[in-house]
């Protein structure tokens, strides 16, 4: 039996199936488009599809899709994406203690050294909740490593990373409404942010163009960071903003240094706002980019091939550093006030 078909039949079948598939998963498109792994100039597809998906998600409420996805996740028992990685601190006690393991790297950038024990008093709902947000830098790699580290230590962690996004291009992806939505769903005691790699670009509105590096651009971006941090600090007691690690491309690196400075000065204005520098943890010398780092006389590849992202080994080191930074900062609060939650 011959099952061969002509090209016209084949093309029709492909196109119709494709369209049928999109129609059947309409409410999903918005999410899918946003989370596609794309580089900066490759955003054309999502630029075209974003308004379409926005329109169709009005036609067919996204709750239909989300509920079907929720049902699937519920049935198969998946927790990591939709829900929270809840780790019980103790079986039945109201108070529990999480021990800090010895840091993988010395915390040379911290003012005080990390204490051995961080006391967390249980409020009855499980543990201290942490929200991790950001672009692909908070995605698989560093994001997942940090999520793992924190949740294994008893924090309730929810990670929400959207690749190829930033605070600048609200027309493409609006982090401000995204964060409102996240806080409507749940309150978080602590929020950890890493964002900005996709923001070093011009910004065009129907009225004018903000050229990167100009005073207007700086003012605009500073306002964005300010507004974003304000929302975060209103809703969470602690806001940790992670700075950029050194980048391979010198031009890009200089941009990132400038933006990190902006993050630092903004975040520190807020009560509970802490900036975490990342310039030394994956470097031989502070601020210098390196792909390979020698740790305990062993060379490890710490950066991805693109010279921007962090490799698996690098993520392990950086997450250890971030974890130690955050917990030691929290425990300093513990020492001051007695326990973490009364501080919070």
């Amino acid at each position: 039996m011959s099952t061969g078909k002509g090209p016209l039949y084949t093309l029709s079948l492909i196109l119709l199936s494709f369209v049928a598939g999109i129609l059947l998963s309409l409410p999903n498109m918005e999410t899918k488009v946003r989370t596609m792994q794309m580089g900066s100039w490759k955003n054309i597809v999502s630029e075209i599809m974003a308004p379409v998906s926005k329109y169709v998600s009005i036609v067919l409420p996204s709750s239909v899709y989300y509920s079907s996805q929720e049902i699937f996740r519920e049935v198969v028992g998946l927790k990591t994406q939709a829900g929270f990685n809840k780790v019980n601190l103790s079986a039945n006690g109201s108070e529990s203690t999480t021990k800090l393991k010895n840091g993988f790297l010395a915390l040379d950038t911290l003012e005080t050294s990390a204490p051995n024990v961080l006391t967390i008093e249980d409020t009855g709902n499980g543990a201290v909740s942490v929200l991790l947000i950001g672009d692909s830098m908070m995605g698989p790699g560093l994001g997942t490593a940090l999520e793992y580290k924190l949740s294994r230590s008893g924090f309730l962690v929810h990670r929400h990373s959207v690749p190829a996004t930033g605070l600048l291009r609200k027309d493409f992806f609006d982090w401000f409404s995204e964060i409102d939505e996240l806080y409507t769903e749940k309150k978080y005691d602590i929020v950890i942010v890493m964002i900005g790699t996709n923001d070093a670009q011009h910004y065009e509105t129907p009225k004018r163009v903000y050229y990167y590096g100009t005073n207007e651009w700086n003012q605009l971006y500073m306002d964005r960071v300010l507004g974003f941090t304000e929302t975060l600090s209103k809703n969470s007691r602690k806001v940790y903003w992670i700075g950029m690690p050194p980048m391979r491309n010198e031009f890009f690196n200089n941009k990132m240094i400038g933006m990190s400075d902006m993050f630092r000065s903004t975040v520190q204005q807020f009560n509970g706002g802490v900036f975490i520098p990342m310039t030394s943890v994956l470097s031989e010398r502070d601020g210098e980019f390196t792909t390979f780092l020698s740790v305990n006389k062993k060379l490890l590849k710490v950066r991805s091939d693109d010279g921007v992202h962090i490799s698996t080994d690098g993520s392990r080191i950086a997450s250890e550093y971030l974890y130690n930074f955050v917990t030691s900062d929290l425990s300093r609060a513990t020492v001051q006030v007695g326990n973490l939650l009364s501080y919070l």
């Binding site: 079948l13 369209v19 049928a20 598939g21 999109i22 129609l23 059947l24 998963s25 999903n28 699937f72």
Partner: peptide, 11 residues
Amino acid sequence: FGLLFALLAIM
């Protein structure tokens, strides 16, 4: 094919 596509998207 459309259903399979949508099912893959959901799962």
